[in-house]
Nucleic acid binder design. Structure first.
Length: 485
RNA sequence: GUCCCUAUCGUCUAGUGGACUAGGACGUGGCCCUUUCAAGGCCAAGACACGGGUUCGAAUCCCGUUAGGGGCACCA
């Protein structure tokens, strides 16, 4: 019997965004931290909002992050079914039980009546809420409506007096007067439960011990506790995690660019970094340490360090962290992850070559997708560039020509196998010409790559190979000669 | 309108009445290293939203104000 059972209960309305996923992550971390169970449950009680492959998108996102579930719609479990739409008889049974106990009642009001009621309340400047007219129906009135076969919903009979104290391990205790709570609909007239009934019944039946969910639920929190009370059940522990905001401090949305996790993957972020970064959004270990492996996250994750205020999703810090993780990768691993990004950019590299490139770019990458513009020149047959860039810093064309000739001669006369030797020889040649390394290597760099910025030159030359290197130097020499005239 | 939540550097945060001259990280600026770009090292600037209390003492507790956010559905 596991001590901790938590769940992630999304409704299948599309790809989950970072905020939702962060909530799932917290739940999962807590489950793993306690050797407990993490359950995936689908809240599909609103047919109108359903998105066709919504569930697949959710499962794919979780899988990408390595958040695996112990029970769920696809793998089943002892507490199933895990689709709320398949649990309808269960909700009906419990709703009826509540009616029998007098804790809930049938309401026969039509949408039109309700709309009119709200309009009147608004006109009087009152808060809009159900006026409980069906709660006070006399037995005969009720019987008459039943005999007419009128459609009904089931509403919770909220206590008229007193207050309800909500225990929240993130926010602390919150006390709400009961008279501010509406007689919430529990069962809709189509036979589907509302969230408020389903969530309580399921969490109870599935023996959930901790409910961590988005902050937006805090306002319906009292309803849920009242339902637990009505059943005489002990509620699980609740914690409402704050939302994730965009840089403009508005709730994270499409406007802020990528919000689905797969988009981040496609932009070259590593799962390790994403996982680490997302956990730090609203949770901190000690304010000092920030880099954690998955295992370390699990070991150190505790509820008492979850923040109660919203966090802004800061991409520049994610970029930094991603770079940290890239630098920690084994070369072979890095190459394997880099290859698809080269291919996608139309560069036909193989794994062998990518393995040679990897050490050259490792500490220069913040994102995997930055690889292409860094090394594309290595794979092009012909490079094109403005000849003027061949002239080195604080040099004229003639000086640059001299330098490049010297470099060409040296390279032509040696093997490209020994990087050490190549560097020594080139460095010596530059010194002899009275040039600074930056100048001498700069000219060579431009000639060979057409760029002023590249990965370390010697490594680049080795990958390019002697033949291509000499050909490019030859081309550049011709261009420089024209410039020098 | 009403109910509720939130409030420490630009951003993520440490801080649970005295160890706070408020610490760390990202970002920013400077310097060093350096074949470019990075990476790395060092240094710097930068915050307790405001006003009242409580207390010998408050970033920490209480009350207001302000500013954000959420709810007020037969949505989740």
């Amino acid at each position: 019997m596991p001590s901790v059972r938590v769940r992630y209960a999304p409704s299948p309305t599309g790809a989950p965004h970072i905020g939702n996923l962060r909530t799932a992550l917290f739940n999962w971390l807590w489950a793993r931290h306690n050797d407990g169970k993490f359950i995936l449950r689908v809240e599909d009680t609103d047919q109108a909002r359903e998105v066709e492959n919504g569930l697949e998108l959710i499962m794919a996102s979780l899988k990408f992050l390595g958040i695996e579930w112990d029970e769920g719609p696809d793998i089943g479990g002892a507490y199933g079914p895990y689709h709320q739409s398949e649990r309808l008889p269960i909700y009906k049974k419990y709703a009826d039980e509540l009616v029998e106990r007098g804790a809930a009642y049938r309401c026969y009001c039509t949408n039109e009546e309700l709309a009119q009621m709200r309009a009147e309340q608004e006109a009087r400047g009152e808060p809009t809420r159900y006026d409980r007219r069906c709660r006070w129906l006399a037995a005969e009135q009720r019987a008459q409506r039943e005999s007419e076969g009128r459609a009904y919903v089931i509403r919770l009979a909220v206590p008229l007096e007193g207050s309800t104290t909500l225990r929240d391990f993130i926010h602390g205790d919150i006390t709400i007067p009961n008279d501010s709570v509406d007689d919430q609909v529990l069962m809709k007239s189509d036979g589907f439960p509302t969230y408020h009934l389903a969530v309580v019944v399921d969490d109870h039946l599935m023996e959930i011990t901790h409910v961590m969910r988005g902050d937006e639920w805090i306002s319906s929190f009292p309803k849920h506790i009242l339902v637990y009370n009505a059943f005489g059940w002990t509620p699980p522990q609740f914690g409402h995690v704050p939302v994730v905001l965009g840089p403009d401090k508005k709730k994270l949305s499409k406007r802020h660019g990528a919000t689905s996790i797969t988009q981040f993957r496609d932009e070259g972020y590593l799962v390790e970094a994403l996982l680490n970064f997302m956990t730090l959004l609203g949770w901190a270990y000690d304010g000092q340490r920030e880099l954690f492996t998955r295992q370390e996250l699990i070991e150190n994750f505790t509820l008492d360090h979850i923040h109660s205020s919203p966090a802004v999703f800061d991409r520049t810090k994610l970029d930094w962290m991603n770079g940290e993780y890239i630098r920690r990768l084994e070369i072979g691993d890095l190459a394997t992850r880099l290859l698809p990004f080269l291919t996608r950019a139309g560069i036909e590299a193989d794994l062998e070559t990518t393995k040679k490139i990897a050490p050259l770019v490792q500490e220069r990458l913040k994102r995997l997708d930055e690889i292409a513009p860094l090394v594309d020149f290595l794979f092009q047959e012909k490079i094109s560039y403005d000849p003027k860039t061949l002239v080195g810093p604080k040099m004229n064309a003639a000086e640059s020509l001299h330098a490049l000739r010297a470099a060409g001669e040296i390279l032509d006369g040696m093997s490209f196998d020994d990087a050490e030797k190549m560097e020594q020889a080139l460095r010596a040649a530059g010194e002899q010409l009275g040039l600074k390394p930056a100048q001498f290597f700069g000219v060579l760099r431009n000639a060979v790559s057409g760029k002023t910025v590249t990965p370390p030159l010697i490594g680049v030359l080795q990958i390019l190979g002697k033949e291509k290197t000499m050909a490019r130097i030859g081309d550049a020499l011709v261009k420089l000669e024209k410039l020098a005239m």
